[in-house]
């Protein structure tokens, strides 16, 4: 997945803090904020609060304790659902990758659920679990579970022949082959599943709060949209973005640290949290 170097259109810069990349990024941010602020002033805060107003409101709802409390409520459901999905998803993906009969047994359901929008099941989830934390946990779980399973499964199943053969040739047992070749070879894929699942779990967390229980961060959005407080809505969205980007960053850092043998380009390239960043086998 090597990227083709592109020609720069900006003036060459002397080395220092202001590298070309930094300059482009900063310009982009300043421009976006300016457009946002100006548009906000033109249409009025009822439709779109500008960034200056959003920052003020962000500080307010943080200091009042409302935002931290909502964040805590959200994170509870997120954490339980996500950890549960990882703990169940990895072993299931491994079993499916290792035993063809297990794959045959589960594959149709996994494929079907993976392409179905989980939101379509929200009414059923309400019927089965009500609108309490169990329901939100279920939504988070079903949002990220399949990413974990499918990536783990692919990682275990697609371990290259050229890696297994030499170890088998040295007289390794099936168990040793699994421990010494398949597990370590699949580990970066498992990690990708964990990372992709994280992004989707955050999405699931917010959607659950929007669609079935007016609570947590999603609940704040619903509540404040009823009174047209776009400044607070944006403040909450910023928190969600920071939460998502931040946690994916941390996992990426962990990946490069755990798998130094993977060429860094395969781990770093691509947009964060997108399917395109699955490492090459």
């Amino acid at each position: 997945m090597a990227t083709v170097p592109r020609t720069g259109i900006l003036l060459p810069l002397k080395p220092g803090f202001w590298t070309r990349d930094r300059l482009v990024r900063t310009t982009s941010y300043i421009l976006a904020l300016a457009i946002w602020e100006i548009t906000g002033r033109v249409v009025g805060p009822l439709f779109l609060a500008g960034p200056s107003q959003v920052v003020i409101s962000l500080v307010e709802v943080t200091l009042s304790g409302e935002l931290p409390l909502a964040l805590l409520v959200s994170l509870q459901a997120f954490f339980v659902g996500y950890v549960f999905a990882v703990l169940v998803g990895i072993p299931l993906g491994m079993l499916m990758g290792r035993f063809e009969s297990v794959e045959r047994f589960f594959e149709p359901y996994i494929s079907a659920f993976f392409v179905t929008p989980v939101s379509a099941f929200v009414p059923m989830i309400i019927i089965w679990f009500g609108i309490g934390i169990e329901a939100r946990v279920t939504v988070v779980f079903s949002f990220c579970f399949f990413d974990v399973v499918i990536n783990t499964f692919n990682g275990v199943r697609d371990v290259r022949y050229e890696l297994v053969e030499p170890v088998r040739s040295l007289g390794a047992t099936q168990r040793q082959i699994f421990q010494k070749v398949i597990l370590p070879a699949a580990a970066p894929f498992v990690m990708s599943g964990i990372r992709l699942g994280l992004g989707r779990a955050i999405r699931g967390m917010v959607i659950a709060e929007l669609l079935l229980a007016t609570t947590g961060l999603g609940g704040m959005i619903v509540t404040y949209s009823a009174v047209f407080r776009t400044d607070v809505i944006f403040a909450v969205i910023i928190v969600i973005v920071v939460l998502g980007v931040g946690s994916v960053r941390i996992l990426k850092g962990l990946e490069s640290w755990l798998f130094p043998w993977k060429e860094s380009s395969t781990i770093r390239s691509g947009f964060e949290g997108t399917a395109g960043s699955v490492p090459e086998g």
Binding site: E162, E165, P166, R168, L170, G171, W261, K262
Partner: peptide, 16 residues
């Protein structure tokens, strides 16, 4: 396969 014989592969087959 057993350790009374060993094989060297064209694709090296090292564990990365």
């Amino acid at each position: 396969p057993a350790q009374d014989r060993g094989m060297v592969f064209q694709t090296f087959g090292l564990l990365p």
